[in-house]
Design a binder for these strands. Structure first.
Lengths: 209, 209
DNA sequence: TCATTTTTTGAATTCTAATTCATTAAATTA
DNA sequence: TAATTTAATGAATTAGAATTCAAAAAATGA
């Protein structure tokens, strides 16, 4: 039982992937409710009905998209966490990782950013719930990194969870601005600014004799 | 021509207000697409059709809601900006103002937070466009405060716009966490944590002889 | 090649909810 | 109070898409 994932199956997955990337563009441009299955099908060069061979329905398509990418970045971050770096460098490298991933996946993050804060289906919907849960898991592991930094004396005494929230807040804000902005500057170039604010704050050092 | 805004008109506005607050609760609980005009009408104790005497339609109702509250907080912040305080205290007092306003208007902010990042209608829709524009205006005036702080030597050299983004990022993050959290702690109590991170960063001071 | 199975298709169906509007009720005024 | 104007009502209409499904096309393999 080795290659019982072959041909047929492989082609199926390829087509599925094609549909996902068509959907990514449509959703990014018009949001969930603004997009129609017709438009996604047209863009992917399939008949409308065909999409239902690959996904249970519109929501399933949408959340599969989110799942796939979130899985990807999660794996990247996890790998980074396995490297044994000093806390501050570790945070910096995670930051770099994220910024460059986001830069490479602008369309997707347009979707993700507006989804993370959606209450509509956070409540009841099984699919929607996952998005926020995964975000919380991420905050948790980031908090763990912070805790290590505090224990090691590199970071100040403070609730590590709060610290993690502060961090993602700053990052999100720059990501959001970058995504909204028509001018296409490099997101990665914002890294020094972000670490500067997060690690050292905005107060002038001159005043602190 | 003094009180040509009377009785009739006053009653009209009262009812309009009643509808708005019913809508606030429904939208906060279910989001824009999850809410129906029927439910809002029922909650406000009106017939469905009546809502259309007060608002052009669902979108208009929704954005009127946002407009009203954003106008309110904007006026408060503007008043605060008129007081002539040193930059750091000014930022702290704006922060306090906001946190307590948000604490008093949790339902509304549930709506607002998920709206600020909505692309669906940011693009074409006249109504939707306004939300993001007002946010940008807010960033601008915050940037101006930062600029003054930099000029006065209280804040370090840095693009004041970036500084403003960092600030709202941290704030948003704590607001978001507070809104999502079922545990009802005081949002205002997070103020010291926020200022601590924003002004002084998270790096331990011990390491900096 | 041709019968059989699998996949694709998009028009027809179904569902959902916004909006309209003829009817009814309330308020105003003579 | 009765006529008239104004507002409220909610059932009926309309609109917009998601989903289904019978027919057509493609792939398979004998």
């Amino acid at each position: 039982m080795n290659q019982r994932i072959s041909r047929k199956r492989k082609e199926f997955l390829t087509r599925r992937g094609d549909i996902l990337s068509a959907a990514e563009k449509v959703f990014a441009a018009k949001g969930f409710y603004g997009s129609t299955m017709d438009e996604i099908a047209k863009r992917a060069e399939f008949g409308t009905g065909s999409l239902y061979k690959y996904f249970r329905g519109k929501k399933d398509l949408y959340f599969s998209l989110i799942d796939e990418k979130v899985g990807e970045i999660t794996r990247l971050v996890k790998a980074e966490l396995d490297k044994d770096l000093p806390p501050i460098e570790r945070i910096e490298s995670i930051l770099h990782l994220q910024l460059s991933f986001i830069q490479r996946n602008r369309d997707f993050f347009k979707i993700y950013i507006s989804e993370r804060n959606r209450f509509e289906w956070t409540i009841k919907d099984e699919l929607g719930k996952g998005v926020h849960e995964k975000f919380m898991t991420y905050i948790d592991s980031l908090g763990e990194v912070m805790r290590q930094g505090i224990e090691g004396g590199q970071l100040k005494e403070m609730d590590p969870r709060d610290m993690a929230h502060g961090f993602v807040g700053i990052v999100n804000s720059f990501v959001f601005e970058w995504i909204m902005s028509p001018r296409a500057y490099s997101l990665v170039s914002k890294r020094p600014t972000i670490t500067n604010i997060f690690f050292d704050g905005v107060r002038s050092q001159k005043t602190r004799r």
